[in-house]
Amino acid sequence: LPLEERVTHFRDMLLERGVSAFSTWEKELHKIVFDPRYLLLNSEERKQIFEQFVKTR
């Protein structure tokens, strides 16, 4: 999958899993780590997309 598509899937997962915009990566990790979409991005990309996600929520 192209990166753009993987990012979209990852963001959808964050929304569906009820990730809080007022929380930290560490506190929200347990909600998403077992979702197959979690593995679409490498660890650096995951954290970066998470940070963007919480800023725009």
Rank of each mutant, 00 (worst) to 15 (best):
Tyr38Lys: 10
Lys27Ala: 14
Met13Leu: 08
Leu29Ser: 07
Thr56Asp: 15
Glu5Leu: 05
Val7Gln: 13
Gln52Ala: 08
Phe50Pro: 00
Trp25Arg: 06
Ile32Leu: 06
Glu4His: 13
Glu44Met: 15
Phe22Arg: 11
Pro36Thr: 05
Gln48Lys: 09
His9Lys: 14
Phe22Gly: 13
Ile49Pro: 01
Trp25Tyr: 14
Asp35Ala: 00
Tyr38Cys: 00
Arg37Tyr: 08
Asp12Thr: 08
Arg46Gln: 06
Arg17Cys: 11
Asp12Phe: 04
Trp25Ser: 05
Glu44Ser: 11
Leu3Pro: 11
Lys47Gln: 14
Pro2Glu: 15
Leu1Phe: 15
Pro36Arg: 06
Leu40Met: 09
Met13Arg: 03
Arg11Gly: 05
Phe53Leu: 02
Lys31Asn: 10
His30Thr: 06
Glu26Gln: 09
Glu28Trp: 00
Gln48Val: 12
Ile49Val: 14
Asn42Arg: 11
Glu44Ile: 14
Phe53Gly: 08
Tyr38Asn: 06
Phe50Ser: 01
Ser23Val: 09
Lys47Asp: 02
Val33Asp: 11
Glu4Lys: 14
Met13Val: 09
Phe53Lys: 02
Gln48Ile: 11
Ala21Gly: 09
Val54Tyr: 06
Thr56Val: 07
Arg6Asp: 02
Thr56Leu: 09
Tyr38Arg: 03
Glu26Val: 01
Lys55Trp: 06
Val7Lys: 15
Glu51Asn: 11
Phe34Tyr: 09
Lys55Phe: 05
Val7Met: 15
Ile49Met: 05
Arg17Asn: 11
Tyr38Ser: 01
Ile49Leu: 13
Ala21Val: 11
Phe10Met: 02
Arg37His: 00
Lys31Trp: 00
Arg6Ala: 13
Thr56Cys: 11
Leu40Asp: 00
Ile32Gly: 02
Asn42Ser: 13
Lys47Phe: 12
Lys31Cys: 07
Val7Asp: 11
Phe53Ala: 00
Tyr38Asp: 01
Lys47Met: 11
Ser23Ala: 13
Val54Glu: 01
Leu15Thr: 12
Ile32Trp: 06
Gln48Cys: 10
Thr8Val: 10
Lys47Val: 06
Leu40Lys: 00
Ser20Glu: 05
Ser23Gly: 09
Val19Met: 00
Arg6Gly: 01
Arg17Ser: 07
Ser20Val: 03
Asp12Gln: 11
Asp35Lys: 06
Thr8Phe: 10
Leu14Gln: 05
Leu29Ala: 08
Glu44Asp: 15
Tyr38Leu: 06
Leu15Asp: 12
Gln52Trp: 04
Pro36Gly: 06
Asp35Val: 01
Ser43Gln: 13
Gly18Ile: 10
Lys47Gly: 09
Leu15Gly: 10
Met13Trp: 12
Thr24Asn: 09
Arg37Cys: 02
Phe22Glu: 13
His30Leu: 06
Asn42Tyr: 03
Val7Cys: 05
Glu45Asn: 14
Val19Gln: 04
Thr8Asn: 10
Glu45Ser: 06
Asn42Thr: 09
Met13Phe: 02
Lys47Glu: 05
Lys31Leu: 02
Leu15Val: 11
Asn42Cys: 07
Leu29His: 15
Leu41Lys: 00
Asp35Ile: 04
Ile32Pro: 08
Lys55Asn: 10
